[in-house]
């Protein structure tokens, strides 16, 4: 049984499609990254899955039951910035959620606060919390009733590198308990250490659904890039422009030139034929991040 599934799910605001006919299945226990630039439709999709908004067409299911339905009580969510009653302490906010959901002992609140390293700040009013503390408390609330499915919308937003690493560790631990996690981000690097599979969305359309490593293979032609240094750097720039190669100047004085893999041998021989004396040509592999960005650009997004 799928833990999360979407079938031809769409959400329109007027004529604009925020989510456009997307379908996917996530099995129980999977951790899936949901990638896309800001405004791509990630949050709208998560809201649809959480039953907060109604689809214009299509449907979604959580643990085999159509959304909205009672199974949503088995879902933990953290959508956009977590919000709280500012006049209550962190503990009281969790207690309120515990009562509202039902069946949660006070000891669980203490346990989960400790899990997200918020036990020492639990008795402070939320109004005095930093962004990072709010993110942690939001995660604590999402985990309070031991959900079987977690929908997390950019949970590391506003966190420092240490906080990001801690949240990542928290999520790994949760996932090891068989919880299905759909985690959105607009930065691949944030989730590439956590997830094996990604969904890439752009302008409401699902561009890619598969293992993270396949993003590069999914593209029509892989790319490679060279960092070049010549005896006369100005002449190199002129020649690259003349030959129609795009390039960028790096802070180390080199020029980076990205070319399709099949074109790579031609680049160097053409430059040699044009009497450009290269001092160094360092080849760079097409990273996941590069591939992800190219995937988005190929869909028409300006780079």
């Amino acid at each position: 049984m799928s833990a999360i599934s979407a079938t031809h799910l769409s959400k329109h605001y007027g004529r604009k499609a925020a989510v456009d006919n997307i379908s996917f299945n996530i099995q129980q226990g999977e951790i899936v990254g949901f990638l896309g630039p800001n405004g791509a439709g990630k949050t709208t999709t998560l809201r649809l899955l959480a039953g907060l908004i109604h689809p214009s067409s299509g449907s979604s299911q959580i643990l085999g039951q159509r959304v909205p339905g009672p199974n949503l009580l088995k879902v933990g969510t953290m959508i956009e910035e977590p919000s709280f009653y500012p006049y209550m302490t962190g503990w009281a906010n969790l207690k309120h959620a515990a009562i509202l959901h039902g069946g949660i002992a006070d000891s669980r609140i203490d346990e989960i606060l400790k899990f997200v390293s918020m036990d020492k700040a639990a008795q402070k009013k939320v109004a005095a919390y930093s962004q990072g503390m709010r993110q942690r408390l939001g995660l604590a609330r999402a985990l309070l009733w031991r959900p079987k499915v977690l929908l997390l919308d950019e949970p590391t937003n506003g966190l420092d590198p240490v906080g990001i690493a801690e949240i990542r560790e928290n999520l790994r631990e949760i996932a090891s308990g068989g919880v299905t996690i759909l985690i959105s981000s607009h930065i691949l690097a944030e989730i590439e250490k956590l997830v094996a599979r990604v969904l890439v969305i752009e302008k409401g359309k699902l561009l890619f659904d598969g293992p993270l490593t396949q993003i590069t293979q999914n593209l029509d032609e892989p790319q490679t890039s060279y960092q070049l240094q010549a005896t006369e750097q100005n002449a190199l720039e002129e020649k690259l422009s003349e030959l129609g190669y795009g390039f960028e100047s790096l802070s180390n004085g080199y020029l980076r030139v990205a070319v399709p893999l099949s074109e790579a041998p031609n680049l160097l021989s053409r430059l040699a034929a044009e009497n450009i004396n290269l001092l160094e040509a360092k080849r760079e592999e097409d990273s996941l991040e590069d591939a992800y960005l190219r995937l988005l650009r190929e869909d028409g997004r300006p780079s």
């Binding site: 809201r47 907060l52 009672p70 919000s83 959620a97 509202l100 609330r141």
Partner: peptide, 9 residues
């Protein structure tokens, strides 16, 4: 609202 309606659905 998003918190309340995802806690008691």
């Amino acid at each position: 609202w998003k918190t309340v309606l995802t806690t008691q659905t």
